[in-house]
Design a protein around this nucleic acid. Structure first.
Lengths: 197, 197
DNA sequence: ATACTTACTTACTAATTAGTAAGTTTCTTT
DNA sequence: AAAGAAACTTACTAATTAGTAAGTAAGTAT
């Protein structure tokens, strides 16, 4: 009965606490801007304890992206998301980015890793590509159905529009980091104005 | 007569070579992913020579952004840019990003620094804000005139559209880095389709 | 009771980092 | 010709980095 899956909402184990903190630092400061020492100090353990769970920073980084990919798939297939009409699915997507903004203006995973992409371990690069591809495919489908059923309006192909919208949202969070929340709100307002029929 | 300004197209001095290489590394790998040692080794000088010209990495980083800001102002005011009709000015902007793509898929300055923004020296943060603000203001003006004279088409305020377009272009270069040139071409194609009347 | 596994800590290494101080060479100015 | 400034190199420090090896304590399985 020591399976962590049965601990419900109890305190997470060290393995998860490491991943949570690493995610926070990644999204707030960048992948090359935190070390095992930072993690260890803040978690009250020794750096070697982090190496025990994630032997190298490559492993840790890859686990981070893999978890986010799992979350995406889970979120996308949730009844409260999958069963919505397209315009509401688009709003649900915007709510995710708005939530990032509310959490100390965290950028999204893609926005955090894209610039440093070439310094990332290959496994992490591959996972990030998959993550972005699946998210884009999901939104392209939402847009296609939304235009067909009249809830969403745009020109061009759904795939092109999906790529454009997602990149814009990632960039809007980056703009919020560099300036303040205003550019994010302005850009998301512009997206809504153009897309919602 | 040893003033570097008189050397015309001759070999640049060490000071400029440092800045050029640092810019390349910044745009290709990120600000926290290169060191004075990297610079020194590639330039064939000792690390202390870099410190002589740019005492700290903060100074180097700030000089990088300051130079880019100078370039923006110069480019914007160039007769061959300033005298163009708005739609052609927009195309001139796209050509700049296309040029980044052609140079080993370099991201733009904003896209390179936004994620790591909180780890940057304050002077660098301030310069980047100014850079982004001036670029956005320039494009907003182009868009306003373009819509008034019929060459460009969009809904909403010119300022909002300018912010959205620039962030999209920055993001398109990041997408090209993560995947390949395709998403960049797709996204820029979408922008053209929507904006050009 | 014994063996094994999990989750660590202690103690270390080798490499890399930014940065400094002092000395050297070469060019420029007077 | 002498003085000074510019552009370095040599030699160093102190801190930080990822990563490893060996040991330990507590829980689990047989």
């Amino acid at each position: 009965m020591s399976n962590p899956a049965h601990q419900a909402a109890l305190a997470p184990d060290t393995r998860t606490r490491i991943l949570d903190l690493a995610e926070t630092l990644l999204l707030e400061r960048g992948f090359n801007a935190f070390s095992y020492q930072h993690l260890a100090k803040e978690l009250g353990v020794k750096p070697a304890a982090i190496h025990y769970h994630y032997p190298s920073k490559d492993d840790l980084g890859t686990a981070l992206v893999t978890r986010q990919l799992r979350r995406l798939r889970k979120w996308r297939d949730l009844p409260r998301v999958a069963d919505l009409p397209p315009a509401a699915q688009f709003e649900a997507l915007l709510a995710v980015y708005d939530n990032h903004l509310g959490h100390d203006r965290r950028v999204c995973l893609f926005g955090a890793l894209a610039a440093d992409f070439r310094t990332l371990p290959p496994a992490m690069q591959a996972e990030l590509r998959t993550f972005n591809r699946e998210l884009t495919e999901w939104l392209a489908q939402v847009l296609a159905v939304g235009r067909a059923t009249g809830g969403l309006r745009f020109v061009g192909s759904p795939a092109a529009k999906a790529a454009q919208v997602l990149i814009t949202l990632a960039g809007a969070l980056q703009a919020a980091r560099v300036h303040d929340e205003t550019p994010f709100q302005v850009i998301v307002g512009q997206l809504r104005l153009e897309l919602l029929a």
